[in-house]
Nucleic acid binder design. Structure first.
Lengths: 115, 115
DNA sequence: CAAACATATTCCGATATAGGAATATGTTTG
DNA sequence: CAAACATATTCCTATATCGGAATATGTTTG
């Protein structure tokens, strides 16, 4: 046997630092490939390939608009990670307070935003 | 250039499924290598090697007791992941409620547990 | 100390990438 | 339709693992 694919689930997909950087941008707003290239300053094929991986594991979705392709993050797909991380939360006493106030704030605003 | 090490930070370390399985066991209780081997049924060197990676990125710590080595999870080391995941939490309207009640429950009990 | 035990390490081979370079595909516009 | 534009894909190479097998290291016990 040998290595396993780092491209087949959400956990391994975010193991790659460049992919995390792309996600960090896309979570801010939907963006075209060239917009991303302008920001991160990597060769376009590099960006496209990483987007391909993210797309394969459904972390991002793509929408065509003319000759552009607009990418956006699909936050729901991160839930497996969040759920897996949940097993450690009980050890984070101090951060719970922050999170709690954050939640209160969000919920005061009206729970969820439109799609 | 080529692949980058999947063994140098927390994100890539948990990208490997077997390592997640080990973590899931160790979070339950401190355990020796052979205890883990008994549970997961992989060859001992495989277990040891994955533990080595987890140890290198500080996700687990090791403590010697006689000829045994007892491993345990270091939950604090997962905080970078949790913090990174935080950027998506606002999209999880429905799960916020669960989490909120979870927090309320925890806090009612007395906020933090001893180390 | 020798044997048994617990675990780590080394050496090995197979393979899945990551990135570079070049090119292909698809779209708009003149 | 040709040229320009936007993006994906293919081909290539180097390399970092993953797991297997064998062995080394360290500890306890008789």
């Amino acid at each position: 046997m040998a290595r396993l694919k780092t491209t087949h689930d959400v956990f391994s997909a975010i193991g790659e630092p460049k992919r995390r950087i792309l996600i960090e941008q896309l979570v801010l707003k939907e963006m075209s490939v060239n917009e991303l290239v302008d920001i991160v300053q990597w060769p376009q094929p590099v960006v496209s390939k990483h987007l391909g991986v993210l797309r394969k594991v459904r972390i991002v979705s793509e929408r065509r608009q003319g000759r552009h392709r607009l990418y956006r993050v699909q936050p729901d797909e991160f839930r497996p990670i969040q759920e897996w991380m949940h097993q450690f939360e009980k050890y984070w006493g101090s951060s719970l307070d922050q999170l709690d106030s954050y939640l209160t704030e969000i919920q005061a605003r009206g729970k969820n935003e439109p799609d």
